[in-house]
């Protein structure tokens, strides 16, 4: 484990925990943004530049701002009085620890760890674009449909039904 990775990991996990456990929703959103940024740094650390910058543009840029807007427009950002922890948080923690232990055990025992890292391949934006229009053209189209469905669904669910409610 290298030092930059350790710093990025601690930052990301701390931000994610804060996003779950803070009381003020706006603070949660900002912590979430920090977690997104930490992930972007992790991608950059792995030399996945396109994914890293896309993460910054889409999540840190657009999604985080949308979340903050949505919170400000709907709630006015009041903080709840009660604790935000669920009553069964101890159980949740236990399950999480067990799952983490299993995963950690499986990863350390796996033969994959001994595999030497793949050779660095320089993936330019042009290559990614080419791949998206050739081999991955079908997934790209289906994602288009998925976004259409999501957009329609968001409008339908958020739209105020007028008059007819009972």
């Amino acid at each position: 484990m290298t030092l930059p990775f350790a710093i990025i990991a601690i930052l990301t996990i701390a931000a994610a925990v804060a996003a779950m456990s803070l009381r003020n929703l706006v603070h949660c959103a900002l912590a979430l943004t920090l977690a997104f940024a930490g992930l972007a740094a992790a991608f950059l650390n792995l030399d996945a530049q396109f994914v890293g910058f896309a993460q910054i543009l889409v999540y840190v840029g657009a999604v985080a701002i949308l979340i903050v807007f949505a919170i400000l427009l709907t709630r006015g950002g009041e903080t709840p009085e009660k604790s935000v922890f669920s009553a069964s948080w101890a159980w949740g923690l236990a399950v999480a620890v067990v799952v983490f232990a299993t995963l950690a055990w499986a990863i350390t025992k796996s033969a994959v760890v001994e595999r030497r890292p793949a050779e660095q391949v320089e993936a330019s934006v042009r290559q990614i674009g080419d791949a998206l229009m050739t081999r991955f053209v079908l997934p790209l189209e289906v994602i288009g449909l998925l976004l259409t469905a999501a957009l329609m669904g968001a409008v339908i669910i958020a739209m105020r039904e007028e008059g007819k409610s009972k």
Binding site: L146, A150, G153, I156, I157, E161
Partner: peptide
């Protein structure tokens, strides 16, 4: 794509 459409279909009765 399938799941997302089905979630929305489940929520369709807004009354």
């Amino acid at each position: 794509l399938t799941s997302l459409s089905l979630y929305i279909l489940a929520a369709f009765n807004k009354r």
